[in-house]
Measured scan of single mutants.
Amino acid sequence: GLPEGWEMRFTVDGIPYFVDHNRRTTTYIDPRTG
């Protein structure tokens, strides 16, 4: 799974992105792969 505090969501286009609730940021880069 994802690191603690992270969540995976999808855009309206079906593109996955990642929400970091710890820092309240979003990124398209998987936190597991950097």
Rank of each mutant, 00 (worst) to 15 (best):
Y28E: 09
R32F: 06
D13Y: 11
F18G: 01
T26K: 14
R9V: 08
D30E: 03
T11V: 02
T33L: 14
Y28W: 15
I15R: 13
E7W: 02
G1F: 09
R32N: 05
L2E: 00
F10Y: 13
F18N: 01
T27E: 05
F10A: 05
G34K: 09
P16K: 09
V19L: 11
T27R: 02
F10Q: 07
P3W: 04
R32L: 05
V12W: 12
T25A: 10
V12G: 10
G14W: 07
R9G: 08
E7H: 05
G1N: 11
P16A: 10
L2K: 03
T11M: 02
E4L: 13
D13A: 13
P31F: 03
R24M: 15
T11Q: 07
I29G: 06
L2D: 01
P31G: 02
G1P: 15
W6R: 00
N22V: 15
F10G: 01
T26M: 14
G5I: 04
V19W: 10
Y17H: 02
T11L: 03
E7F: 04
G34I: 13
M8G: 01
R9F: 14
W6S: 03
R9K: 11
P3V: 03
T25S: 07
G5H: 07
I29M: 11
N22A: 11
D20S: 05
I15D: 06
G1D: 15
E7D: 05
R23Q: 14
D13K: 12
D30H: 04
D13V: 09
Y28A: 07
V19M: 08
T33F: 11
R23F: 11
H21V: 09
W6F: 07
R24Q: 15
T25M: 12
H21D: 09
E7G: 02
D30K: 00
D30A: 01
P31V: 02
T25W: 14
I29S: 08
T26A: 12
Y28L: 11
D13T: 13
G5D: 05
M8K: 06
F18H: 01
D30I: 00
I29N: 10
V12R: 14
T26V: 14
P3N: 03
T11H: 05
R24N: 15
T27L: 03
G34E: 11
D30P: 04
H21M: 09
M8S: 01
F10L: 09
G5A: 07
R23Y: 10
T26L: 11
T26D: 08
L2Q: 01
V19E: 06
P31C: 11
V12A: 14
Y17R: 00
D30F: 01
M8P: 01
P3M: 05
F18M: 00
E4R: 11
D20Y: 05
N22E: 13
D30G: 00
